[in-house]
Design a binder for these strands. Structure first.
Lengths: 137, 137
DNA sequence: CTAATGTCTCTAGTGGCTAGAGGTTCAAGA
DNA sequence: TCTTGAACCTCTAGCCACTAGAGACATTAG
């Protein structure tokens, strides 16, 4: 049995975040000490570690909730888990692609400055005017 | 002179968002009709278009606020604007790199399913256990 | 037993909007 | 001129995933 602080340092999840997860039902309500402080065991640790890892991978809490529910008895847990992971992967790839477009655009905008223009601020002008963009976004 | 709805369709910024921008001082308070409805001119349009474009590029509103202030009289507006753009570009590149790490990891996790394992759910196991990861994140 | 540290609950704030309620104004057609 | 219906107004509350802070109580090392 360990305290919330110990759980926090074992998992790397901050204390207020652990309490928040309990509030919204992502982790189960912890047992309490005689003085009303939360006490955790290995099962609590494993569950929080699962949540942490999934969050680090960028999964939203709702998806994590689903995965936890699957783990506790669904017909095709693995099918569904795979679907959730694949969905998230798709989101991730879209986001990366979009960010790369912006990166190219912003690189171009930022480089105007270095290329010797002096009169007006080309950086601000480029930010102001979408028509100066080479790609759509 | 045009209404908020017209401004919205010209710029692609939704009406509640325009009002929100006015609230927080990103755009200046609009003039009003006799019946208290907002009325805009070309200057208002240009300013909102600037904000929109910068938001599309992912700049946070605070950075946009700074850029607007620069445009209205700083000593070295272009230097500062360039710094803001370059900072943002750095953020963007970090985020892309991080997302790419996650993408690789998640691809690996999702592919376990396809590779013929059947007994336990390897997808859930991989999500649960950080030690199964090949890279740190 | 004391002092320091840890933990408790509760409220409110973050960014960047979005949704909805309930009321007012505008512009076009009869 | 009147009426209708769309557009507009303000205000409050909600979204996600936390984070910060206040003021009080619990635990633990010495």
């Amino acid at each position: 049995m360990f305290s919330i602080g110990q759980l926090s340092s074992k998992t790397g999840v901050k204390i207020p975040t652990i309490r928040y997860y309990e509030d919204i039902g992502i982790i189960t309500n912890a047992g309490r000490s005689a003085g009303n402080q939360r006490r955790y065991d290995d099962a609590g640790l494993r569950r929080l570690a699962f949540v942490k890892h999934a969050r680090d991978l960028g999964l939203p809490l709702d998806a994590i909730r689903e995965l936890i529910a699957l783990d506790h008895g669904a017909d095709q847990p693995c099918e569904d888990a795979h679907r959730i992971a694949a969905d998230h992967l798709q989101h991730l790839r879209n986001r990366i692609a979009r960010l790369q477009t912006l990166e190219r655009e912003l690189t171009r905008i930022a480089s105007v400055h270095d290329s010797g223009y002096a009169s007006d601020c080309q950086v601000i002008a480029a930010l102001a005017d979408h028509h100066l963009c080479e790609t759509s976004h």
